[in-house]
Write a protein that binds this DNA or RNA. Structure first.
Length: 178
DNA sequence: AACCGGTACAACCGCTTGTTA
DNA sequence: CTAACAAGCGGTTGTACCGGT
């Protein structure tokens, strides 16, 4: 049987953090550093559970965070990393200095996902949407016929396989990074 | 001015993972 | 090996804000 993340849960504050609570958390971590989130609230004089303190610090109060809009470069990187890693937000955020998993996840869900949909790309698998996929296959089919007539054999299936191979090799490249 | 729908993002919850005794 | 626990993760929810009607 698993213990709850904090004792006497009913006494804990929930919801938005006040300025005073933020300041207590900042003061405590500045003085003692991060660590042992379970005991931190009591030590810092906060009526919050450790999980809540950790999240507040990691996603909002940490001075190393980069606030403000995402750049085009960051957009591109998130899209590429998502294509390779899927919804592994902490891994993706790890490649974006000053950004948190929560921030990247929120940004993906509110901006980038829509952006891809507009471009006719399925944000789940980063492939063309069904309609565009059919059109593309029709196009490739047409090219097959033409190529055969020209005496050059072009195979749509192996073209798709090449794309998959490219994704796989990108993944390997990524894994080889420090 | 009031309402409404959409958007952004902070925060919560439940589950998984890593560590330690 | 295993149980217990803390920390971390990703999905989801709550809510403030904004622009359109």
């Amino acid at each position: 049987m698993r213990k709850p993340c904090c004792d006497n849960k009913e006494e804990m504050h929930k919801g938005a953090w006040s300025k005073q609570e933020d300041q207590k958390l900042i003061d405590y971590i500045t003085k003692h550093g991060e660590g042992c989130w379970r005991n931190l609230p009591k030590a810092a004089g906060l009526l919050r559970c450790g999980k809540s303190c950790r999240l507040r610090w990691m996603n909002y109060l940490n001075p190393n965070l980069k606030r403000g809009n995402f750049t085009e470069d960051e957009d591109d990187l998130i899209i590429k990393l998502h294509a390779l890693l899927g919804n592994r937000w902490s891994l993706i955020a790890g490649r974006l200095p000053g950004r948190t998993d929560n921030e990247v996840k929120n940004y993906w869900n509110s901006h980038l996902r829509r952006k891809l949909i507009k471009l006719g790309i399925d944000p789940k698998n980063h492939r063309l949407s069904h309609y565009l996929h059919i059109k593309r296959l029709e196009f490739l089919q047409e090219n097959n016929t033409r190529s055969e007539n020209d005496g050059v054999i072009f195979d749509a299936a192996s073209s798709c396989a090449n794309e998959d191979q490219q994704i796989t090799s990108s993944l390997l490249d990524l894994n080889s990074l420090p």
